[in-house]
């Protein structure tokens, strides 16, 4: 009998604890992000789709079509890189850079492998498309312009690397 009453009382106490937790939350501010109007504040290192930004100083892309990124890509998402051909000789500059967004798994390995910091993962995240063909992108002719803190981050990256290269040469 005592156990019976004890059971009831401990039960009610534990239920009240739960109720108090939910009651406390009634007075807290909602945590929802009102998505289409309010955009999330993305992290600097956020990995959206791959882009080949235009270097604002040179007003040109930095890619030399060295193919390292294509070799390092785990599932062959970088399909084709073509060099610019001048006077019958290939120059170290990309004319065509075909990237398959459909198979890309945003692992960032190509970006890390690139010795010239020519490519970077952008902030774009709503990437769905009705057509599979539209997921195969040509990055050179896109002439992508980075903005905001991502641009600064990207700039600092290749500046560091040029400094490092100079150090190595010395």
């Amino acid at each position: 009998m005592i156990k019976y009453i004890k059971n009831i009382i401990t039960g009610i106490i534990s239920l009240c604890e739960g109720l108090s937790v939910t009651l406390k939350h009634v007075f807290r501010k909602p945590i929802t992000l009102q998505y289409p109007e309010q955009k999330p504040d993305l992290q600097l290192r956020y990995r959206g789709r791959l882009v080949m930004p235009v270097d604002p100083e040179k007003n040109d892309i930095r890619c030399t079509a060295c193919m390292i990124c294509a070799k390092v890509c785990p599932n062959h998402s970088i399909l084709e890189i073509e060099k610019v051909i001048e006077d019958g000789k290939p120059k170290p500059k990309a004319k065509k850079y075909i990237y398959n967004l459909g198979t890309c798994m945003f692992c960032n390995l190509c970006v890390e492998a690139c010795p010239f910091a020519a490519i970077i993962m952008s902030d774009e995240y709503a990437l769905a498309n009705e057509d599979k063909e539209k997921l195969i992108l040509e990055l050179v002719s896109e002439k992508y312009n980075l903005t905001g803190k991502k641009l600064n981050w990207w700039k600092s990256k290749f500046k560091d690397e040029t400094i490092n290269k100079e150090k190595v040469q010395k």
Binding site: Q43, L44, R45, Y46, R47, M105, F106, C107, N108, L109, M121
Partner: peptide, 15 residues
């Protein structure tokens, strides 16, 4: 997730 994302750039598949 935001913490790990700020480090790695990925939310679930951090690599």
């Amino acid at each position: 997730i935001d913490l790990v994302e700020s480090m790695t750039g990925g939310r679930l598949t951090h690599n």
